[in-house]
Amino acid sequence: MAESFSTFLYDQFVASVPDPQESLVGKTAIITGSNTGLGLEAARKYAQLGVSKLILAVRNTTKGEEARQDILTSLKVTTAKTQWVSQGPTGGDVAQAEDAAKRIQVWELDLGSYKSVQAFAERCERELERIDIVIENAGIATYQYVKMEDNESTITVNVISTFLLANMLIPKLKETAQKFSVRPTLTIISSGVHFWAQLSERSKVQPGGKLFDVLNDPKTAVMNDRYNVSSKFTLPIEIKDAHELY
């Protein structure tokens, strides 16, 4: 969501969002929250662009496996179509499909748990030869005050765990940069709704006190305000992709 209504309309109706076409052959990508929604579609795109290794980092690996199968099915359809055009209906896509099945993997990552985040990052360090792209898409939105780890849940998942993962993966990204002479990318899916936030809670921070203590205080955390979304609200606000699922 943009700063003004006119920018919003521009984004939704005028701005073109080009479909990336560059080949990703040889690259390794990680997409969190990729079992559904925008994360899944971005994963499908990377698979179509030939990414050599794609990690679907998801909380629920059963749903992750469904997403993986869904991507593999759409790849087979695309491959079959291309071959129909180039070689006629007999062209075999088996080898390519088998290759794709190996390239896409489902790994468990629960951003509600620091232990899980660390275990995931350690696994990346151990098992991946390189990391070229990380898209941190997973997140939650809730109207209820729930604690996860040491914070209110949206802070733990969307902020602390998100940047814990980012920082833990950086050494591997740096190593990739050096070894393969590339510039890896770390992308955080945020949202334009920050335009409407002024963090008014800051006025409650005592001298020497912590902003996060105020943000985590159930007495001052007005959850509806946290996302400013209500069913009566007619102008829609995009919240992060995953809600209850990531």
Partner: peptide, 8 residues
Amino acid sequence: PITLNFVD
């Protein structure tokens, strides 16, 4: 050596 960006 890494690019960090954030997206709406």
